[in-house]
Every structure is written in C-alpha cells, then in structure tokens.
Design a protein around this nucleic acid. Structure first.
Lengths: 204, 204
DNA sequence: AGTCTTCCATACGCACGCGTATGGATCAAG
DNA sequence: CTTGATCCATACGCGTGCGTATGGAAGACT
C-alpha cells in the first residue's frame, strides 16, 4: 500500500507518521505506564516502526516529552472552556466541572501520571500551569457566587482537592467508588456541600 | 574502625547494615524519585556500600520493594491508631485525622508516589489495603455520627478524597496552598463542611 | 532518466541497572 | 590456631534504552 496521495498533496497530506502521532502515542504510554513509559524504542515497536523514524521527527526523548505535555496542556485547558462552554451561571458551571472531572477516565489517569513526576522540572511547569488555570477557573466561579477573595480561594482549593482525590480513589480503589445511581447520589452530595448556593458571603 | 562491640554482643547488636536500613532507604528513595528510584546500585552508593551487601540481605530488588511497602503499610496503619489514639468522640477523631493528614510531608509524598505505581500488581495490593483501612476508619466515624451506611460511605469517601486532593495540591502547586493562619482557616472550613455535626441523619 | 527530498531501517557504541560468582575481612567458637 | 559464619567488595555477563551514523526506498521535480 504505497502512499498514493493523489488529491491535496502540497505539504500537509502525508500518511506517514507525523510528530503528532508520536506525541499522542506518548500520552497513551503515560496514561498506562507513567512518564517512564515514554521510551523511544518501545514506542517505536508499538507504532510498527523503528527508532529511525523517531529521530527524524524529534531531536531526542525530551523533545517528545515536551510535545506530549504541550498537547496535554492544550487539551486540558480546552476542556475547561469547551466542556463547560458558554455558561453564565457560576453554579451550573461548577456542577458541569464536577461531572466533567469524573467523565474521562483517560484524562484522569493522565493527570495523575503526569503529576506524579513533578520532580522533573520540565514536567513541573506544565502541571503547575494546568493546576493553576483549573483552580483559577473555579476561583472565578466562587467569586461570581459572591464570595470574597480569600473565601473563594479556599472554596476553589477545596473543590479542586475533591476532584483530584476522587480521581485517585477511582484509580487506586475502584471498588470503593460507587456506580450508577449510587454514584449520582454521591456527586449530588458533593455538589450540595461544595456549592453553598443560598449563602451570601458568610463562611463563618 | 573495626566493630568492637564489647558489650551486648549476642545476635542483635550489629553495627553493619540491616535489612530494615535498606528498606528505610528504599522508602526515602520512593518519597523522592518514585518507585523506580528503588534501584539496588544507586541505593548501595547512597548507603556507602556495594551491591554485595544488598544481595546478602535480600534475594532481589522485588524483595526489597516488598519489605519497604510492608514497612510503609505498617507505619500508615499505625498512624491511624497512634495519632488519633483513644478518642471516643467521632467528631474529634475526624478532626484529628484531618490535621494528621496534612502533618507529615514525607508521608504524603510516600503515599502519592506509591499510589502512582498501581500498575504493578504487588504495589496495588498494598495501596488497596491502606486506602480501604483508612476509608474504613472514616466510615466508622461517620457511622458513629449517626449516618446510615450508604451515607456514611459517601461522606467517608468525600472526606478521604479531600485528604488526597490536598496532598496533591501541596505537592504539585505548593504556592496555592496557604500557610500559617490562612491554612488554619482553610482546614477549619473543610472540617466545618465535611463534618455535619448537628445533622441527625439527613443527607437530603 | 536523473537528482533531491522525505521518511525510515539497520547497525553500532555507550551507559546503567540487575543478578551471580567468588574472594576477602572480621569476629566468635573450638 | 584453625574453622566456620557473617557481611561485604570486586568482577563479570546480560538486557535494555539512548543517541548517532549511514544507507535505502519512494515519490516529487526538472
């Protein structure tokens, strides 16, 4: 099966491996085996090629990691905007965030796996940006709900911690995470507790 | 500097390396560089010896990992009993758990690092046991507060998720975690929200 | 038909960690 | 003083992943 790109040739219609394909494969590897699973030779085997391909697209392993993490950051910050979308009501926005947080299994594993390698300075920068942006979004929501700055920060951190913790529980002890109707009730409880709707500004 | 153990010789007064010393060093390595940092040769260098020492105390790297994880499980489950101790009031017990959770920096890093390697089946077993035991303890507290089984389970999971999430935030974005007085207020908020004291049994 | 560029395969040297084999040093026991 | 046990050093082979060097196939261009 030779290429045979008859239409739309120019410069972007290549059916050989692209750098993005490598980056996406790297993200898959991270979601499964952690950051250390981003190894050139195993990835090449998985893609059905050899290292020769890789070192044409990337300078070295670090470049691939950077590309994968950039792709991840892009997707994570897009999710915050895309999934919740044009929603004016801050209450509904937080609710949607909660449901979106427990929606994508892969995204959760990705976040945990990447955050687990915060020792590497390069990774740390990505994790920090994503976390800060997500908590910042929550902060805006709580601020729009009428909370003062410090209170909104506390609530945002609190809610975000609950997000992350539920991700951990779902990954480490999935049998302790309810499913179906019970899960909905669990989410309802957290939403009810984490979004004090009727409260004006009192936290104490 | 020869041994020169003049007093208390018998069989336990050895100043050479013990298996426990290796296990403890392994835990230190985990807290810093993750599970993959448990490598025989680097650990030996750090302890000032060579592999020859290691392979006398352990059969292989897996045995060291098992010993370290067993030590970790022991410490974690001891903490639950020792730190909170003989406390009858379930409310106070949860509060103490909350404060203990954010107390030890190393313990938090250890938990996150070990849990991040839940792919390895051996590690998974340890993580599951520790998590289940901790959440079980929380469940007992909420049950003692008057909640029905399902509700107590939800609250315990909720609170535990908040624990874990705060650990993550403290590790990944420490600048977003308040200190001093602000931290105390943050804890106070979570305690107030996560422990509905006056409630009889109503969750809805 | 010939050249040039794109994309990949093959082959090499290197570093590093695992596990084993073997010897050496030290001390207790006889 | 000799023997045995304890604890560790040294030296080796193996596997595996990284990075480089070089060649080759296949389409594009003239």
């Amino acid at each position: 099966m030779p290429p045979a790109a008859n239409a739309a040739n120019s410069a972007e219609a290549r059916q050989s491996l692209t750098a993005d394909a490598w980056a996406e494969a790297a993200l898959d590897a991270i979601a499964n085996g952690g950051l250390d699973a981003v190894a050139v030779e195993p990835l090449a085997r998985r893609l059905g090629v050899t290292k020769g391909s890789f070192y044409w697209h990337f300078a070295n392993r670090d470049a691939l990691l950077r590309a994968a993490l950039a792709r991840w950051e892009q997707a994570e910050t897009d999710d915050i905007v895309a999934r919740v979308g044009p929603e004016a009501d801050p209450y509904t926005r937080i609710v949607k965030l909660f449901k979106a947080a427990n929606a994508s299994y892969r995204a959760g594993r990705l976040y945990l796996a990447i955050a687990a390698a915060e020792d590497k300075p390069m990774v740390q920068a990505f994790v920090r940006r994503v976390s800060e942006r997500r908590m910042g979004y929550l902060y805006d929501c709580y601020h729009a709900l009428g909370f003062a700055e410090d209170e909104a920060r506390d609530w945002a951190r609190f809610a975000y911690a609950t997000f992350m913790g539920n991700l951990q529980i779902g990954r480490d002890t999935p049998d302790l995470m309810p499913t179906g109707e019970k899960f909905s009730e669990y989410v309802k409880l957290m939403i009810k507790v984490l979004i004090p709707r009727a409260t004006g500004s009192a936290v104490d």
